[in-house]
Deep mutational scan, measured.
Amino acid sequence: ELVLALYDYQEKSPREVTMKKGDILTLLNSTNKDWWKVEVNDRQGFVPASYVKKLD
């Protein structure tokens, strides 16, 4: 499943990933309501769920 980055996000820990507004990311896990695991540029990590939106 793919998600769209709604905002820029700068990683604050090694478990997170940086994304730019408009990026298309692969959603790996959305079981946590606050932090979703995504893959971007061959890196996996977490981003705030409120910063991304699922693409239909």
Score class of each variant (00 low, 15 high):
Trp36Phe: 08
Gln10Lys: 12
Gly22Ala: 03
Trp36Ile: 05
Gln10Met: 13
Lys33Tyr: 08
Glu39Asp: 07
Asp56Leu: 11
Pro48Gln: 02
Glu1Gln: 14
Arg15Glu: 12
Ala5Cys: 12
Asp34Phe: 15
Pro48Arg: 03
Asn29Ile: 08
Lys37Met: 15
Lys37Thr: 08
Leu25Gly: 14
Lys12Leu: 09
Ala5Gln: 02
Val52Ser: 01
Glu1Ile: 15
Asp42Met: 12
Glu39Asn: 08
Tyr9Gln: 00
Leu25Arg: 01
Asp56Phe: 11
Ser30Leu: 04
Gln10Glu: 15
Thr18Leu: 03
Thr31Ser: 15
Glu11Gly: 15
Leu25Ser: 02
Lys37Ile: 14
Asp42Val: 06
Asp23Pro: 00
Leu28Asp: 01
Asn29Cys: 12
Lys54Asn: 07
Pro48Cys: 03
Gly22Met: 03
Leu25Asn: 00
Leu25Trp: 03
Val40Cys: 11
Leu55Ser: 04
Tyr7Asp: 08
Gln44Leu: 06
Glu1Trp: 13
Gly22Arg: 03
Asn29Asp: 15
Glu39Phe: 07
Val3Asn: 01
Tyr7Glu: 10
Glu39His: 07
Pro48Lys: 04
Ser30Cys: 11
Val17Ser: 02
Glu11Ser: 15
Leu25Lys: 00
Leu28Trp: 05
Pro14Ile: 10
Glu39Ser: 13
Gln10Ala: 13
Lys37Leu: 15
Trp36Val: 08
Lys54Ala: 09
Ser13Val: 05
Tyr7Pro: 00
Gly22Cys: 11
Gln44Lys: 09
Val3Trp: 10
Val47Asp: 02
Asp8Leu: 02
Leu2His: 11
Asp56His: 14
Leu4Gly: 03
Tyr9Ser: 01
Asp34Cys: 14
Trp36Tyr: 07
Leu55Lys: 04
Val38Glu: 00
Thr31Tyr: 09
Trp35Lys: 02
Asp34Trp: 15
Leu4His: 05
Leu2Tyr: 14
Ser13Tyr: 07
Glu16Trp: 03
Glu11Arg: 12
Lys53Leu: 12
Val38Ser: 00
Leu2Cys: 11
Tyr9Met: 01
Leu28Cys: 07
Leu27Lys: 02
Lys33Asn: 12
Lys37His: 11
Asn29Ser: 13
Arg43Tyr: 04
Phe46Ser: 03
Leu4Val: 15
Leu2Lys: 15
Leu2Thr: 09
Val52Cys: 14
Arg43Lys: 11
Val17Thr: 06
Ser13Glu: 08
Asp42Ala: 11
Lys21Glu: 07
Lys53Gly: 10
Lys37Pro: 01
Lys54Glu: 08
Trp35Cys: 06
Glu16Pro: 04
Val38Arg: 00
Arg15Ala: 13
Val38Asn: 00
Tyr51Pro: 03
Asp56Val: 12
Lys20Tyr: 10
Ser30His: 09
Glu11Tyr: 05
Val40Tyr: 14
Lys20Phe: 10
Arg15Leu: 14
Val38Gln: 00
Asn41Glu: 13
Leu28Met: 07
Ala49Lys: 07
Ile24Lys: 06
Gln44His: 09
Trp35Ser: 02
Leu4Phe: 09
Tyr7Trp: 10
Leu4Cys: 10
Glu11Met: 12
Asn41Asp: 14
Asn32Asp: 15
Ser13Lys: 07
Val52Gln: 01
Asn41Val: 12
Asp34Ala: 09
Gln10Gly: 08
Lys12Thr: 13
Leu27Val: 07
Asp42Leu: 10
Lys33Thr: 11
Thr31Asn: 12
Met19Pro: 00
Leu2Trp: 13
Thr18Ala: 07
Thr31Leu: 10
Val40Met: 15
Val47Glu: 00
Val17Phe: 14
Asn41Arg: 14
Tyr7Arg: 15
Tyr9Thr: 01
Tyr7Val: 09
Glu11Val: 06
Trp36Lys: 01
Arg15Tyr: 12
Lys21Gly: 06
Leu6Phe: 03
Leu28Asn: 03
Lys53Trp: 08
Gly45Thr: 02
Gly45Gln: 01
Gln44Trp: 08
Asn29Gln: 11
Asn41Thr: 09
Arg43Ile: 07
Glu11His: 09
Glu39Met: 12
Asn29Phe: 07
Leu25Cys: 11
Arg43Ala: 06
Thr26Phe: 12
Glu39Leu: 11
Glu11Phe: 05
Lys54Arg: 14
Leu27Cys: 09
Thr18Asp: 04
Arg43Gly: 04
Gln44Glu: 10
Thr31Glu: 14
Gly45Lys: 02
Gly22Gln: 02
Asp23Trp: 11
Thr18Phe: 05
Ser50Val: 09
Ser13His: 13
Leu6His: 03
Pro48Ser: 02
Asp42Ile: 06
Ala49Asp: 03
Val17Leu: 14
Val47Trp: 01
Lys54Ser: 08
Gly45Asp: 01
Ser30Glu: 13
Val52Lys: 00
Ala5Phe: 01
Asn32Ile: 05
Leu55Gln: 06
Asp42Ser: 13
Ala49Val: 06
Leu28Gln: 04
Tyr51Asn: 07
Pro48Val: 02
Pro48Asp: 03
Ile24Thr: 06
Asp34His: 15
Gln10Ile: 15
Leu28His: 06
Ser13Asn: 12
Gln44Tyr: 07
Asn32Gln: 09
Asn29Trp: 07
Asn32Lys: 07
Ser50Glu: 11
Ser13Pro: 05
Val40Gly: 14
Met19Gln: 02
Asp8Ser: 08
Gln10Trp: 13
Leu55Pro: 04
Asn32Phe: 08
Ala49Ile: 03
Asp56Lys: 11
Pro14Val: 11
Tyr51Gly: 08
Val38Met: 02
Glu39Gln: 14
Thr31Val: 10
Val40Leu: 15
Val3Glu: 00
Ala49Ser: 13
Glu1Lys: 12
Met19Ala: 02
Ser30Phe: 07
Glu11Gln: 13
Lys53Glu: 14
Asn32Trp: 08
Ser50Asp: 11
Thr31Lys: 10
Thr18Tyr: 04
Trp35Met: 06
Ser50Gln: 12
Val40Phe: 15
Trp36Cys: 04
Ser13Ala: 09
Phe46Thr: 03
Leu2Ala: 08
Lys21Asp: 02
Glu1Asn: 13
Asp56Arg: 11
Trp35Tyr: 06
Val40His: 15
Tyr9Glu: 01
Trp35Asn: 02
Lys21His: 06
Arg15Gly: 14
Leu6Met: 09
